[in-house]
C-alpha cells in the first residue's frame, strides 16, 4: 500500500512539474494555458488522490475527515480550473493578443 501512495505522489509531482516547465517553454499565451491547465489539473488529481487514500487508510474519524475534505478540495479544483483558464483565454483574445505562429484563426473574420 505504501508503494501505491509513493507512486501516486511521484506521478502527481511529475505532472505538476511538467505544467511549470510548459509555462516556461511554450511561445505564447494560449499554448501556455494549454500546458499549465492540463498538467496541473491532472497532477493535482494524483497528489490529492494520494491524500484521500491515506486518509481512508487511517480508518478513524480524523483520517476520514481529512479524506472527505481533500476530496471536496479536488472537486472544486476540477470544476474551477478549466473555467478559469477559459476566462483567461477569452480575456486575452478580446484584449487583442493574437495567437503566435497560428496557421488558421476563425475568430478574426466576422463572428458573433
Amino acid at each position: 500500500m505504501n508503494a501505491l501512495l509513493y507512486a501516486l505522489l511521484a506521478v502527481g509531482a511529475l505532472f505538476n512539474g511538467l505544467g511549470a516547465v510548459a509555462l516556461l517553454r511554450f511561445p505564447d499565451v494560449y499554448t501556455r494555458i494549454h500546458g499549465a491547465t492540463k498538467c496541473t489539473t491532472f497532477g493535482s488529481i494524483f497528489s490529492i488522490g494520494a491524500v484521500v487514500l491515506y486518509g481512508f487508510l487511517q480508518g478513524d474519524g480524523a483520517g476520514g475527515t481529512l479524506a472527505v475534505h481533500a476530496l471536496i478540495a479536488l472537486v472544486f479544483l476540477l470544476l474551477t480550473n478549466p473555467t478559469g483558464s477559459h476566462a483567461l483565454a477569452r480575456g486575452a483574445y478580446r484584449g487583442g493578443i493574437k495567437p503566435a505562429q497560428a496557421v488558421v484563426d476563425h475568430m478574426e473574420k466576422g463572428k458573433r
Binding site: 505522489l9 511549470a20 499565451v29 491547465t37 493535482s44 490529492i48 494520494a50 491524500v51 483558464s85 483567461l88
Partner: peptide, 19 residues
Amino acid sequence: VALDTVNTLVVTTMVLLGA
C-alpha cells in the same frame, strides 16, 4: 496565467501539507 498556475500549486501543496 502564471498566477493561475501558482494558485493551483498552492492548493495542492496545502492539501499535501495537511496530510
